[in-house]
Design a protein around this nucleic acid. Structure first.
Length: 826
DNA sequence: TTATGGCGATTTTTT
DNA sequence: ATCGCCATAA
């Protein structure tokens, strides 16, 4: 009997053999509250997957004294499996399990949709179709699902609309205007920020009003909050924050509903716990209150969203809040080289109030961290592009490179340099597809079809294209709606009955009739959402409106087509007959850019450091490492913000697997102004032993050595950059990239992924086929930025060719043949 | 009601 | 540098 228990433990150790001791401990610890402090790259996703797999396959078996009686044959099989000779059969598994948990009773909450998708994918790879039964989603998507089902308890319909920040802004603008509040004294974003903070901490408009001081400005905010909520309600709409706090409200006011969800889920897991806010904490506590099985994973050092309401206290106090909590630290990093990790550790060590954690790695030390200084941002950007081409020339993939910056505004110069070098890249953040005017308008049409009471959407499109229904008319109609407490759409439907609307009533009725007809179509069976979308573009004249603008707005027409593809894609991915327009709108409203990140596409990646959280790249560039850029100017004098900034730096550094290249510039053009910045203070914290500093700056004769040397503190204006003519030669080793295998557990090699016993084998890289080359050595070519030149060398690479071209004016450049827009010159 | 031009203010991060 | 607001003119 006792030996059976030991054998079972041995077998389980084998099944989860690919993990280290601490990780396995987390996997086997299934009962009660568990805090996993997972350092960057410590394989926390792997732990989550395995922990769920353990719950489903073995339940509480590892620490349980119970075991079924085994026959001799079964014991023989167990013995064989325990010594790694064979894999356990399903029969044996079910015999060994103690209280296994059906997948559908597990809830996993992640930070992004992409993370949730990945989790699902890997669970299916591990558990088969049953993996799909795990509820995995973001807080927002999970709450949205609950509210669609249960919203009626709170007076919302099942097809309520989700307002995004732009919708909220429009609505608030209207409110401020109607209340005669000058936007200069009380900006929209200030009001919305206050409201958002209130919602994060679960304060209703009444709570807020009650807690308010006599500050007249905050009194106004309080009024606006109340009106804002009322207007949302009238529009059958919720904003992002509502999704969370309305769910909490639902659970606290309707215990019987809460109980249903508590009973449904036996095990809860929350990823990125350091980025949760108070409302999210409450939600999780409520859901886990029955089972008590709450596992949160997070890293206090990677908390970078406090600025938008995340409270690090959630993680710092977890052990106090949840009695009997067990804490497990994952400190072995599988991602980065030793030097990169050393740098990260030293940077983060400067922060106070940490849980305390030092990452270590068994990975090779790796190359030193390059720190390169330039005269200006353009030089910096050009060098980065050149460096990428150099490495691609010796076998690197474009997708191996990421450029991570503090603010989106920094992307422009990098983009220019990449375009000039013909390097394909993808950029995340900044203007997104769903944020373009035309896509938002088209979406607004669809929203009005699904939910006519959505006043923000209605006002957005009613005169787009021009229908002669202007502001005056709309203001009157909105006034009437408010007076009678009915939806704007309702007033417009009966426009002819109001004296005030006589003049425009024919036009209004035409518009309403058109929308009603489209809505009828929507309800017909066998009509797919994209059919309705297409017809909408047609009959509303919206697409025509852009087409008439000609070539200049061609991209907008393209985006409208693209939206149709997105709808079709949604239809394809939905279950037969389950694709509804409302469903698409919901998915789209909770979609973010990073969700679309495709690690396989072979291009360089540009994104903010925030957006890069959770991702990793072989080579990472961190441009703009200057005080005032990173750390950003508005954080430099506030200690709390400075700490968050430092954590962001830690996150950025730990994205790199093999190489980290940090750059800065003596002077930089940003927001239309040229600034001279000192090198980032974070650089001081990186030990000299792991960094290789290089100056690529030109002489400034009027400066002497006396000005050189950077001591701490501000020296007003001119930072100390004294260099002799010619600068210092580059010193970095230009040989090939390190060739060791990367041990990343977050992305195991495909071959190793499903095999249960260790011996991961990396499949050999397929040879890259030679591509036909449009350019020959000796050709004369013309480039629209660099002018004329002669092709000096052409080496095939992937399905493209790397050209070295000697330009007449500016010397030699390396360009990718497919992407550089070259013309032949006779 | 719509189109245009000039002006001023605004630049962190985003589910 | 870019965006959004406002006033003015058509």
């Amino acid at each position: 009997m006792n030996t059976d228990l030991i054998l079972r433990q041995q077998l389980m150790q084998r099944v989860f053999a690919r993990m280290n001791d601490r990780q396995r401990e987390a996997v086997f610890c299934v009962d009660g509250p568990l805090l996993i402090l997972a350092g960057a790259g410590s394989g926390k996703t792997t732990v989550l997957i395995n922990r769920i797999a353990n719950l489903v396959q073995f339940g509480r078996a590892y620490h349980s004294p119970e075991i079924a009686d085994l026959t001799e044959a079964q014991r023989a099989e167990l013995q064989a499996c325990a010594s790694g000779l064979q894999m356990p059969s399903p029969e044996l598994l079910s015999l060994l399990a103690v209280d296994p948990c059906p997948a559908w009773r597990i809830l996993a909450i992640t930070f992004t949709n992409k993370a949730a998708g990945e989790l699902k994918e890997r669970l299916v790879a591990r558990l088969g179709p049953e993996g799909n039964d795990v509820t995995a989603g973001t807080f927002h998507s999970f709450c949205a699902r609950i509210l669609r089902r249960e919203g009626e308890y709170l007076g919302y319909s099942s097809h309520f609309t989700i307002y995004d920040t732009d919708d909220s802004r429009r609505l608030m603008k209207e409110i401020l205007k109607s209340r005669g509040i000058d936007e200069k004294t009380l900006p929209v974003k200030t009001v919305l920020g206050e409201i958002s903070r209130a919602k994060d901490s679960l304060m209703s408009p009444d709570d807020y009003a009650a807690a308010m001081s006599v500050d007249p400005r905050l009194r106004k905010v309080s009024d606006c909050y109340a009106i804002y909520q009322a207007r949302l309600k009238e529009a059958d709409a919720m904003d992002f924050d509502d999704l969370l706090c309305k769910t909490v409200e639902l659970f606290t006011t309707h215990p019987e509903v809460l109980q249903r969800y508590q009973n449904r889920y036996d095990y809860l897991m929350v990823d990125e716990y350091q980025d949760t806010n108070h409302a999210q904490y409450r939600l999780v506590s409520l859901l886990a209150a029955r089972s008590g099985n709450l596992c949160v994973v997070g890293d206090d050092d990677q908390s970078i969203y406090q600025f938008r309401g995340a409270t690090i206290e959630n993680i710092l106090n977890f052990e106090d809040e949840f009695a009997g909590c067990k804490t497990i630290r994952l400190e072995q990093n599988y991602r980065s080289t030793g030097r990169i990790l050393t740098a990260a550790n030293h940077v983060i060590a400067q922060n106070k109030g940490r849980k305390g954690k030092t990452l270590w790695t068994a990975n090779p030390e790796g190359e030193k961290i390059d720190i390169v200084t330039f005269d200006n941002g353009d030089e910096e950007a050009r060098w980065i592009a050149g460096r990428i081409l150099d490495k691609v020339a010796v076998g690197a993939h474009l997708r191996d490179f990421a450029v991570l910056y503090r603010a989106n505004a920094q992307s422009a110069s990098i983009e220019t340099a990449l375009v000039r070098s013909g390097i394909p890249y993808r950029i995340f953040g900044g203007h997104r597809f769903y944020d373009t005017q035309e896509v938002r308008d088209a979406m607004a049409y669809l929203r009005v079809l699904c939910n006519p009471t959505d006043a923000v959407a209605l006002r957005r499109i009613i005169n787009q294209p021009r229908r002669g229904i202007g502001d005056t008319t709309l203001e009157r109609a909105a006034g009437l709606a408010e007076q009678q407490d009915i939806p704007l759409y309702e007033v417009l439907s009966h426009a002819d009955e109001y004296a005030d609307l006589q003049r425009a009533s024919a036009k209004i009725k035409g518009f309403i009739a058109m929308m009603d007809a489209l809505r009828d179509k929507l309800e017909q069976p066998d009509v797919l959402p994209h059919d309705v979308y297409r017809e909408m573009l047609e009959v509303t004249g919206y697409q025509k409106m852009w087409e008439l603008q000609g070539e200049a707005e061609a991209e907008r027409v393209q985006n409208l087509q693209e939206l149709e593809s997105a709808i079709r894609k949604y239809e394809d991915e939905s279950d037969e007959g389950a694709a509804s327009l409302a469903g698409f709108l919901e998915e789209a409203s909770l979609m973010t850019d990073v969700d679309n990140y495709d690690a396989d596409a072979d291009t360089v990646v540009l994104m903010t450091m925030h957006a890069a959280k959770g991702l990793e790249f072989p080579t990472v560039f961190l441009p703009g490492m200057e005080d005032g850029v990173f750390p950003s100017l508005q954080t430099m004098f506030e200690p709390d913000k400075m700490e968050e900034e430092r954590r962001l730096c830690y996150v950025a550094i730990t994205r790199a697997r093999e190489r980290l290249i940090i750059t800065n510039a003596v002077s930089r053009l940003m927001y239309g102004q040229t600034n001279r910045n000192r090198p980032s203070r974070f650089l001081n914290d990186i030990p000299p032993a792991v960094k290789a500093e290089t100056k690529k700056t030109t002489a400034r004769p009027f400066m002497t050595e006396a000005f050189g040397g950077n001591r701490g503190g501000f020296d007003g204006g001119f930072g100390g950059y004294g260099h002799r003519s010619g600068g210092v030669r580059t010193s970095y080793d230009d040989s090939r990239m390190p060739d060791y295998e990367s041990y990343s557990q977050e992305t195991p090699p495909a071959a190793a992924r499903s095999s249960w016993a260790a011996t991961p084998a990396t499949p050999p890289k397929p040879a890259t086929p030679a591509a036909p080359c449009a350019w020959q050595v000796g050709d004369r070519v013309k480039h629209n930025a660099f002018g004329s030149g002669t092709v000096k060398a052409a080496s095939p690479m992937g399905n493209d060719v790397l050209l070295t071209i000697a330009f007449d004016k500016i010397g030699e450049k390396k360009l990718m043949g497919k992407f550089a827009r070259l013309e032949k010159e006779s």
